[in-house]
Design a protein around this nucleic acid. Structure first.
Lengths: 160, 160
DNA sequence: CGATATATGTGCATTATACACGGATGTCGC
DNA sequence: GCGACATCCGTGTATAATGCACATATATCG
């Protein structure tokens, strides 16, 4: 049923949200990085130059929070800030070579982690799960961004 | 590939971790509850009587954090504490009728939410996703609890 | 040019969280 | 039965994270 899907999803989210996986990845990659900075660095590394507001939306945090954390990443020499190409208001964040190296090390460690967890899965099952999960993620994201606040008659629920 | 699975999973976790779904559910259920208390109440309601330590493990938080949050739930009249049946050290938390009603209201709202998101899915796809997700969740949980920390032998890198 | 909107950063308060410690209870070995 | 050790729980304390309000800079539109 739907309930089983929900429970499986919540259990999985619960595991992913624990500090251990991140910490394990960082240890495996041989780097030391604050747990809150970790997802931001990876996103910047993967999705290219990002402004603070855009990054905040991706991370689901307030832009002020992200602003401070990006400043930390900058002070650590992992990202650089630069003026936006077409908009001087944005100060895009891009990874430095050091940051890129760290992102790649994390990526390699992550591959090993997935390989360990999915060791006994068939290729077909892995592909199927990836496909359905992608579909669910896209639809859930679209639902959150478009559908969820309005139907209840609530106002923006975003930034009034 | 594995990377696609990872990205889909991270996107989905990102959506689930946003405040909007929880807030939407609470609005839809017609209740007002702190976002941090929300998952604890639901777990207590679903998994029967739970001690603080056990609940902390399920939630992936420190027992002291959970202890304070459960106290809040108690002061709100949503859960009750009582001595454990076989162990007087544990003070089991169980939902009150008011808490049970809230859990059920949330459950109904959640069903509607899932129905909206999964409107165009076939029953087969939903069942397949639930099955694979459950399998992944179980294996990931087992991996985190048994395999991940020991093999590296690392322990520091946390609080200097 | 003036009005409004967006991007960013900072001051401030609140909340969440973890670690350390002490008290209470359970378990085990003698 | 009793003492050593483990486990459960709560509290004191410190730190980190987060959000909101506000200020500044730039963009966009009329």
């Amino acid at each position: 049923m739907r309930n089983e899907l929900h429970e499986a999803l919540m259990d999985l989210v619960g595991v992913v949200n624990r500090p251990q996986p991140d910490q394990y990845l960082l240890n495996l990659a041989g780097v030391s990085l604050d747990r809150a900075l970790f997802p931001l660095l990876v996103r910047i590394g993967l999705r290219g130059p990002l402004g603070v507001v855009e990054l905040a939306e991706l991370a689901g945090r307030d832009h002020s929070t992200v602003s401070r954390q990006v400043a930390k990443l900058e002070s650590l020499g992992l990202v650089e800030r630069r003026a936006g190409a077409t908009d001087a208001r944005v100060r895009e964040a891009v990874v430095t070579p050091a940051g890129q190296a760290m992102v790649e090390a994390i990526g390699r460690a992550r591959s090993r982690m997935y390989a360990a967890v999915l060791a006994d899965w068939t290729e077909e099952d892995k592909a199927t799960l990836a496909r359905l999960l992608r579909r669910l993620a896209d639809q859930a994201k679209a639902w959150v961004e478009d559908g969820s606040p309005p139907p209840g008659g609530e106002q923006g629920a975003d930034r009034p």
